[in-house]
Design a binder for these strands. Structure first.
Lengths: 149, 149
DNA sequence: GCTAATCAGTACAATACCGGTCCTGATTGA
DNA sequence: TCAATCAGGACCGGTATTGTACTGATTAGC
């Protein structure tokens, strides 16, 4: 149904929580309680975000996580790709040799263009935008997406 | 990884084949051979497309399928939704009551807006666009996509 | 140092979904 | 009537996702 995984969804929730207090280090357990998610799941998501460089992790007592970048510089597409890997609408959109039909496929080029369009539209939405919307504030403007090259 | 299902991919392939000869009725077996897909799979996809009203089906001997609409009026999003159901980036983007976190979720409104943006971008790409791109079988353009493991 | 808190990494079970197949019945042209 | 073809299910195996558990490494504070 063309949806992101639950883990990606959780990741955005956690990122919004971190963004609410950008300079404070919050532990995984603390974030889990605030978001009402299972601690092990939260730990897994945060680890992926840390690997992608979106959050900084601090070990040891009083350790935890903190945003690694300003909220205006983190886009949705970075969060999704941190959790799920590179976005591609079809297998062949991401790398070659994954599809046995590649040599006689009529729709590969269009799909690659479509993937690019989706990525572009997602990259325009930043963490700051989500944060601004969260207090049930009415979404001010629609997001205009240009597709045709 | 935010991708469409293989069945949706197949659906676009079949739609492009049908679009190449819009007035001719082509049987499922014929389309399967042309697209080098398994006949039962093709039959399943065509049935879904027929249910969605994107193709007309004709039973009996010399029966088969034909586009139900002009190529300029069929968008990618219609094809995807015919196969996978309504598009929504998260469960709660499509209908309520699907997520136990709904009452205390911070990111529901943003996700709904994001889903809308993706749908809008996909709706701008029509079958005619895909068809126009296909004859130009892209020579080995090096679309190297970096995978961060 | 010692201890407790916390992250890092791996492994693993349960579940759900997807892809693919098959079967039976209904419809239609020859 | 007969053969070709679609319609509508049921069905199964494989894989990804989800969630959990365990062990080890690192750090702050006493």
């Amino acid at each position: 149904m063309l949806k992101v995984s639950k883990l990606s969804d959780y990741a955005t929730v956690l990122m919004v929580r971190l963004a609410a207090e950008p300079q404070r280090v919050q532990s995984a357990a603390e974030l889990a309680e605030a978001a009402r998610l299972e601690p092990p799941t939260v730990a897994k998501v945060l680890k992926l975000l840390a690997t992608a460089g979106l959050v900084d992790s601090f070990r040891g007592a009083a350790g935890g996580y903190r945003l690694a970048l300003p909220v205006a510089q983190i886009s949705i597409v970075q969060i999704i790709e941190a959790i799920e890997g590179p976005i591609g609408m079809t297998e062949c959109s991401r790398r070659e040799g994954q599809c046995s039909h590649e040599s006689h496929c009529d729709v590969r080029a269009p799909w690659q263009r479509i993937s690019g369009a989706v990525v572009q539209s997602l990259s325009q939405i930043r963490l700051a935008d989500m944060l601004a919307e969260t207090p049930a504030r009415p979404p001010p403007s629609d997001i205009a997406i240009q597709i045709h090259a």
